[in-house]
Structures are given as structure tokens and as C-alpha cells.
């Protein structure tokens, strides 16, 4: 039997409710179980992993896996753990996220509030950039990086990710700014504000939601990228994703050290998780902001 609820949506009876919650719990378990196994395994000793139950809690509780993954596990011939590569990733991810977000915001501002002849065409071309797959960039980008002397460097990766990301951040910001009334910019111009000060004082302060979307999106894309990292860098300059792959596939002793692998994987995934938790509440708000004016 359907009853009216507070929000006016009719919902089913208790049986339907049990089914809905059951399904949701099942889905939650499906997604959370791998994380549970990763976490527990990372704190187990090798002995417990080979002898014990996959779902058992770690006993004794051991940090060896984490210590080794961070500072002493071998990635190829180099045995200093992931720490060096972690900071590599930070070194190109942070500037690339900031650069692509800043350019995206400026592009969106120009494409919506300072339209010029052909600006729609330029926006269309930028939009195409979001459809071009990673793989198509590889060869031309490798040539360009070589020509400008940025191959096999953190700076080179920063450039690659910034350029690739601008198409996405421009799309996000443009769609957000298009909903901001043009009158606001006109008022600022009448008030004597220049192109830059209008952006700085009027547009930027109301852009937080969409900037958060850009930051989350770009951070996830760039931090998790494997392909550009493995193609454009080698050895010392590898990002953490490539190093994790090497760590997992280097088994000098012939024994799979699952605790180290799991800890390494969690270390690699942690920064994106943190960004989601910190900026996540803006994420949904920003994605839907364009739809509802105001």
C-alpha cells in the first residue's frame, strides 16, 4: 500500500522497504569488501596472510607492510619504497591541478562574459579536446616534450596534464559562468572594474563550487594517471602509480608480499580519498549549480 510521505513522494509498504534496504546493503558490501580486505591485509604479517582466513582481522597487528611499502620495498632495482615517487606525484599533480583550474576559470570567464567573434568556435574546439583519448596524445606529445627539453621530467608531466585538463576545466567553468547574469559583469564595468579586477572581485568569489569540481576532477585524473607517467618518464621521475605497478611486479624473493602490496595501493589511493572528503561537499553542489539558476 502506498502512503504519502513528508516530501510528497509515494513509497511502498514494509516489504518493498526491506527489499530496497537489502539491495542497498548488498551494494554497499560489494564496494566496501575489497577495501576491508585491503585494509586488514595491509596490517597482517606474511605468516598470517598465507595461513589465515582472508576476512580475519589482523592478529598480531603489524605495521611492517606499511613501513616497507613507504621506505624499503623494491620497485625494480631501486629498493627505497614509494616515498620518493609519492613526492614526485605531488610535485606535478599540485601545480598541474592549480594551473589547469586557473586557466579553465579564465577561459570560462572569457567565453561567457567577454564574447568575441569566433568565441563559440573556440569553445567548440576546446570541447573536442574532452573527447580525444589519452592514447592519441602520446606520440605527438612525446615529440613536443623532446623538442622543448622537458622529456623525462616532472615539469614535462605538469605541462602534459595541464594542457590535457584545460579542455575539461574550461567546459566546467564555462557552463557554470553561463548561468551568472551578464548584468553583474556590466555593473562591474560601469563601476570601473577592469577585465582582471572584475574576475578577481566579482566572478572568482562566487566560483567556489565549480573550482572545487575542477580540483577534484583534475586531482583524480592526474594523480591516478598511469599512461602519461609510464610513457613520458623513466626511473627516478616516475609517478607513484607507475612505481606501485613496479612494486607489485617486483618479487625478488619469489614470495608475494601481499601486506606490502596492499599498503602501497592504499598509500597511492589515499590523496584522492582525502581530496574527495575535504572538497566533496562542494562537488555535487557544483555539478548541479548550472542546472538551477541562482
Amino acid at each position: 500500500m502506498a502512503t504519502r510521505t513528508e516530501d510528497g513522494v509515494a513509497r511502498g509498504g514494509s516489504l518493498a522497504r526491506v527489499l530496497v534496504y537489502g539491495l542497498l546493503l548488498l551494494a554497499a558490501a560489494y564496494f566496501l569488501l575489497p577495501l576491508y580486505v585491503m585494509l586488514t591485509t595491509s596490517f597482517k604479517t606474511l605468516g598470517q596472510i598465507s595461513g589465515g582466513n582472508l576476512f580475519a582481522l589482523p592478529a598480531p597487528f603489524s605495521l611492517t607492510g606499511w613501513q616497507q611499502a613507504w621506505s624499503s620495498a623494491c620497485t625494480g632495482s631501486d629498493c627505497t619504497g614509494l616515498q620518493h615517487y609519492f613526492w614526485n606525484s605531488v610535485a606535478f599533480t599540485v601545480p598541474a591541478v592549480l594551473l589547469s583550474t586557473a586557466f579553465g576559470a579564465l577561459n570560462g570567464y572569457v567565453l561567457t562574459k567577454w564574447r568575441f567573434k569566433g568565441s563559440e568556435i573556440i569553445f567548440g574546439l576546446l570541447l573536442v579536446g574532452t573527447f580525444v583519448p589519452f592514447q592519441m596524445f602520446l606520440l605527438p606529445m612525446a615529440r613536443v616534450l623532446g623538442m622543448i627539453g622537458l622529456d623525462n621530467s616532472v615539469a614535462g608531466l605538469t605541462l602534459v596534464h595541464s594542457v590535457y585538463g584545460v579542455a575539461f576545466t574550461t567546459l566546467f567553468c564555462r557552463n557554470y559562468y553561463v548561468a551568472i547574469p551578464d548584468e553583474l559583469v556590466k555593473a562591474a564595468r560601469i563601476d570601473g572594474a577592469s577585465f582582471i579586477s572584475t574576475f578577481r572581485y566579482v566572478i572568482l568569489p562566487i566560483s567556489t563550487p565549480i573550482l572545487m569540481v575542477c580540483v577534484i576532477w583534475q586531482f583524480t585524473q592526474i594523480w591516478n594517471d598511469f599512461l602519461f607517467g609510464v610513457v613520458f618518464t623513466s626511473g627516478d621521475a616516475h609517478p607513484i602509480t607507475v612505481a606501485l605497478n613496479n612494486l607489485v611486479n617486483t618479487s625478488s624473493t619469489g614470495i608475494k608480499r601481499y601486506n606490502v602490496d596492499m599498503a602501497g595501493a592504499i598509500i597511492t589511493a589515499l590523496p584522492t580519498l582525502v581530496v574527495y572528503i575535504v572538497a566533496g561537499r562542494y562537488f555535487m553542489r557544483g555539478l548541479t549549480a548550472g542546472a538551477v539558476k541562482g
Binding site: P181, E183, K186, A187, A188, I190, V202, I206
Partner: peptide, 12 residues
């Protein structure tokens, strides 16, 4: 100086 139809006050 100009006054606009939709006020155009800076919301921030």
C-alpha cells in the same frame, strides 16, 4: 552610473 533591471548586486 547605471541601475539594472535584475539589480546586479555583487552576491559575495
Amino acid at each position: 552610473a547605471m541601475v539594472f533591471q535584475f539589480y546586479a548586486l555583487y552576491p559575495n
